[in-house]
Structure formats: structure tokens, C-alpha cells
Simulated assay, not measured.
Amino acid sequence: MLAYHLFKNLLFTPISRAVFHPWVRGEQNIPEEGGLIMACNHLSYGETFLVPAMITRRMTFPVKAEIFQQKSIGGRIVGWFLKTVGQVPLDRSGGRASADGLSPVQQVLADGGVVGIFPEGTRSPDGRMYKPKTGVAKMALEAGVPILPVGTVGTEFRKGLFGIPVMKRPGIIFGEPLDFSHLADRSGEMKVLRWVTDEVMAAVQQLTGQEYVDVYATRAKFGELKDKDLTPFVRPRPGGGELPPRPAPRAVESTAGAEQPA
């Protein structure tokens, strides 16, 4: 998409390099072609433009649909920009609407594109890693694409000169792709989706060194755990158990020797 590359190469990449001075490691781990999901931790909104700015491949983020539907002038400008650079709306209302809303994302993967996902679902409230949601696993298994763990550090915004928010030497680390194609036929098993998701986020944690809190970030930011001590929920890593075994095949009752109806 021409608009994407124009905004990226003429605006976001040069500004990011000049203002934030980011460092990047592991870019050789990014496959040069083919459908790919990049799963990233989420410290600030800056990652939504910094990560795409630092890679050569075009990257698509599913963006919550409400952002595309804002009525204010500023909101309409943001919605126009997101549509112009090819980002896709994601319906998070649940049910059939949410399932249908994944179609544009699945099409990007089917076309061999790169999709960026923040499995935690929202920005970390305190710099720690929080429990990931399983959508990343479901998308990967259904699309048959690998997942690339991406770790970001130092991407939080701080007040700079004249109070302008800046990131100070943020870093992006790309891990090695994770292939779960052998589980493609198990995309409907929630325990498998949880195991895959936890393995992905454990790989991200190895890149960032973050402490892991085994609750959803929304509970810590807006729910009953807001401003509470989360120490009891701290774990060494997400998940850690074995891959759930395949369900035993159901026994088929034999009709041999059964009395036949007259």
C-alpha cells in the first residue's frame, strides 16, 4: 500500500530514529515473506508506530472498532489515517460480531502479510507483564502461520523538553519464530489455545525480563484489583505446564449381536 510506505518512510521512521534513537536486535529472525503474527508486550501506545517503523515489512494492527467510529474532528482524522495506512477495525463486543470482525485480519495473513498483536489486550499499568488473551493462538492455528515473539523495553513515554512526551533509547528485540502448525487441528480446544498463548508470552518474557503477573491487565487497571497488592499473583512465567493431551477418541458402541427389530 503506497500510503503506508509514504507515511512510514517519510515520517515515522526518520522521526523515530532522530527523536527516540531506538535500538533493534534480532531483525534477522523476521521471515522475509509469508504470513506472520508478531506478538508483542505492551508498555505504551508508542509501540504501535515504533515497531512497524523499525522493520522493512509492512505491518497491520487490528485496532478496536470504536476508534474508527469517533465523531470528533480529531477522532475522524485518526480514523481516516488508520484506514489510509491499511489498519483494520476489530469488533470486541463478543459473539458473532467479534468472530466476523477477524475476517480482515485473517485475510492479511492469507495474503502473506504481517499482523501485530498485543496479547495482553491493553497497556501494562506498571511495566510488568500481564496474563495474555488467547486470540493470538487461535489466529495462528487457524491461519497456519508462525508467531514471532517481540519484546520492547524502554518504550514508556516520559516528559521531555517543553513537556513533550518522549521515549528515551527504547529497544525492540525480535525472537525466533515459533511454529505451532502441528496443532492446527486443535484450534477449538481452549486448553491448547491457552498453552500456546502462554508459550508465546514466555518467549516474549525471556526477551524483556519482565516480572509476570498472572491476572488480566484490565482487572489491575479498571477492575476489582485496581490499586491492590498483586504480589500473590506474581509467577515465574506464563503457563509452564505440558501441552494438554489429545482427547481420547469416543468409543463406538458395537451393534454386533444386538437383537434386530422385527
Rank of each mutant, 00 (worst) to 15 (best):
R128M: 08
V252T: 15
S187T: 04
A258I: 15
V200H: 08
I172W: 03
T255A: 14
D126H: 02
S254C: 10
V150D: 11
G35H: 12
M167G: 12
V63E: 05
G154A: 10
R76N: 04
M38E: 09
S124K: 03
L82R: 00
I172T: 09
V24Y: 03
I73P: 06
R246D: 14
G94E: 00
C40G: 00
V85H: 05
P245F: 12
E66W: 11
I67N: 04
A137L: 06
E120P: 08
G95Y: 01
R123K: 08
D229N: 02
P261M: 13
R17D: 13
D179N: 14
I147D: 01
R76G: 13
T60N: 12
L2H: 11
K168P: 06
G135T: 12
P146V: 15
G257M: 03
K133N: 13
R76Q: 11
K131E: 03
P89I: 03
F157L: 15
P177F: 09
V88Y: 09
K133Q: 13
D185H: 15
A97R: 10
C40H: 01
G160V: 05
G160C: 00
A39H: 05
K191Q: 08
L10Q: 09
T122E: 04
L161Q: 02
H182P: 03
G240Y: 01
H21F: 12
E47G: 03
A220Q: 00
R186S: 05
V192K: 05
G241T: 10
V88Q: 13
S103V: 12
A184H: 13
A143L: 02
R219S: 07
S16A: 15
K133H: 14
L43E: 10
R237P: 07
I117W: 02
F68Q: 06
G75V: 09
V213Y: 07
R57K: 14
Q106I: 13
S44Y: 15
C40D: 09
V24T: 00
E27H: 02
P249G: 10
C40T: 11
G112W: 12
I55H: 01
E66G: 10
E32C: 13
A65L: 08
T60P: 07
K228N: 00
M201Y: 10
K159V: 00
G154Q: 02
M1I: 03
V192A: 03
G127Q: 07
H21G: 05
M129P: 02
K191V: 03
G101R: 15
E199F: 02
G175L: 10
A137F: 04
K71S: 07
R237E: 08
S98D: 00
A256N: 01
W23N: 00
